[in-house]
């Protein structure tokens, strides 16, 4: 606390805003309907500006990326006392619980390590909040609006020094009419090398 900002300055105001802790979780909720309409408009807006589905996915991911960077700053300050995770498992559980709780009001349904590759991790959600009201038409193939959430996760990981490729996929579940959404995280090589050095 060497340089506490002067009272009444913009910096002081920013710091106050970041310091407010959500004591009552309910007061921090926003309307799901409002969000759903806004998100729907965002997808439609981007849809008019792309030529193919991969591009749309990329644009949604990019929109989420900025949110991820900001969420990282905010949550590190609010929840972690300005500490950042430096280990792989630490940052993964930060995404799975802290980030998910603050964005969606609950921890993610599951966090698993990929079975085929060492560098892959999966966060699965039975019903991703952004997909709650969305039915993707058949002609769009495997497109998943969860790309936005994948972008958020990528933002958080990139921001904390864990560059990764993050993608969202639908995975069918037996006995369920709806597939679940899996966020697939594939870390860069240097992350695993550093991790091996640290342990």
């Amino acid at each position: 606390m060497a340089d506490a900002p002067k009272k009444g300055t913009l910096r002081a105001a920013y710091r106050r805003a970041a310091d407010i802790k959500p004591r009552d979780a309910r007061t921090w909720q926003v309307s799901l309907n409002a969000f759903a309409f806004l998100f729907s408009e965002m997808v439609q807006y981007n849809q008019t500006r792309v030529d193919n589905i991969a591009e749309l996915e990329h644009r949604l991911e990019h929109a989420g990326y900025g949110v991820g960077l900001r969420m990282l700053e905010l949550l590190c300050h609010r929840e972690k006392g300005n500490r950042r995770e430096v280990r792989l498992l630490g940052i993964l559980s930060f995404v799975h619980s802290t980030l998910w709780k603050s964005l969606f009001g609950k921890v993610a349904d599951s966090l698993e390590k990929g079975t085929e590759n060492e560098d892959e991790y999966m966060i699965s959600e039975k019903e991703l909040l952004v997909n709650r009201f969305i039915s993707v038409p058949k002609d769009m193939g495997a497109f998943n609006c969860g790309a936005y959430v994948a972008g958020i996760v990528k933002g958080v990981l990139d921001g904390s020094g864990f560059p990764a490729r993050v993608t969202a996929h639908f995975v069918p579940v037996e006995g369920q009419p709806r597939p679940r959404t899996t966020i697939l995280i594939k870390f860069s090589e240097e992350v695993l090398q550093r991790e091996a050095r640290l342990s």
Binding site: F37, S40, V43, Q44, F133, I134, P177
Partner: peptide
């Protein structure tokens, strides 16, 4: 209102083809 109007792939006034709505 939920499953048709909040679906970004639905065009207003057009025939409804939304899996979730049917479901």
């Amino acid at each position: 209102v939920d499953y048709v109007l909040k679906n970004p792939f639905y065009e207003v006034e057009m025939p409804i083809r939304c899996e979730l709505f049917d479901l």
